[in-house]
Amino acid sequence: MDLRSIGMGLAFAFMWSSAFTSARMIVADAPPLTALALRFLVSGLIGIALAAALGQSARLSRASWRGVVIFGICQNALYLGFNFVAMQWVEASLAAIVASTMPLLVALAGWLIFGERVRPLGVFGLLLGMSGVALIMGTRLSGGVEVLGLVFCGIGVLALTFATLAVRGASAGGNVLMVVGLQMLVGSAVLAVVAALTEPWQVTWSARLFWAFAYTTLVPGLMATWIWFMLVARIGAVRAATFHFLNPFFGVLVAWALLGERLGIWDVVGVVIVALGILAVQWAKVPGRA
């Protein structure tokens, strides 16, 4: 893995993790699903415009269209939709930690449902990661965390896990930005319908809302997704997914730095355990490394 790939992986992990803090800022002043639908609309249109300017086509293969629909619904509408609603009640750091367990859940589902062989290092990583999650959840629950918000975060990461399993092997066929933009428009359409039926239009306009919305739209929403696709094309999905072990660190760190969220000793211990578990699971998948 060269330095450019490492830089791309670090950038992706930081951008992805920081989205929870900016989302927490947004839902403090705006209805979550409406804001998310608008975010995806803007990101999607920008992505498609840039893709068209680069000569990318919307004429995709059947597998690519399936990925667009599945990811648009499961990742953008369900995963992020449930997380945005949940962050009205739970801290951004906790939402980031729950979401970062996706690689563990993918590995666990592949083992239990699809009968995929898991090396001893992978099994150790699964057990280690889940124990870290249990430690953090036990600490937060005893501290009075909102259970409904935690459940919504759990539903969201399960939707993302399903999407990841469902479209394994699907390729963007060189139309990376076009696929990203189309996925976001699918998510925007689904969320707009739900928001219109369930949310009132109540917005507290502020500079923080503007900058948080602009950041989450352009950086985690568009740039991080594009970098992820490029990283996968460069080093492969297995090696790229190794960078997920940084997500708990960055998620907790950004929330602590920008929102002043609590960071207890057991949170730190739990994050380290989860990160090591994710790293072990992903490292076990790299040929010749287990």
Rank of each mutant, 00 (worst) to 15 (best):
P248Q: 03
R168N: 05
G260P: 11
P220S: 09
S206T: 13
K285I: 02
V194H: 08
A107Q: 02
I6P: 00
G67K: 00
Q183D: 06
F84Q: 10
R59Y: 02
P287A: 12
T217G: 07
L141G: 05
Q88E: 15
L148Y: 10
G288E: 11
R140E: 15
A241R: 01
A172Y: 01
M25W: 04
L108W: 08
G169V: 09
L165K: 09
V27N: 00
G115P: 07
T164V: 06
S57R: 13
L105I: 07
I265G: 11
G138D: 10
W211H: 11
E91L: 10
F12V: 09
T217M: 05
G270D: 09
T217I: 07
V167F: 02
F229N: 07
S43Y: 01
F20Q: 05
A195N: 12
L185A: 06
F249S: 04
S61Y: 06
A35M: 07
Q202T: 14
L185F: 09
G174H: 11
V219I: 15
D29S: 15
N247Q: 14
L104W: 03
P32C: 09
F84H: 11
A275F: 03
V281A: 07
M178N: 03
D267Q: 11
Q56G: 13
F249I: 08
I113K: 03
P103E: 08
W211I: 06
M87S: 12
D2H: 06
L41Q: 01
L259W: 09
R24C: 03
F210H: 08
A11S: 15
H244D: 04
L104G: 04
A255W: 02
F152M: 15
V193T: 12
L197E: 12
W89H: 14
G181Y: 10
A280E: 02
R234Q: 12
A77L: 08
P31T: 13
V268I: 15
G143H: 12
G7C: 11
A237P: 10
L45N: 01
A95Y: 03
F12Y: 12
A37Y: 07
T216A: 11
G251V: 11
G277W: 02
N247I: 12
R239M: 01
D267N: 07
R140K: 15
G288Y: 11
G154I: 08
G264P: 05
F213H: 09
S93Q: 08
A63S: 15
A290N: 15
V176D: 09
A280M: 03
L135G: 05
G156V: 05
Q88I: 06
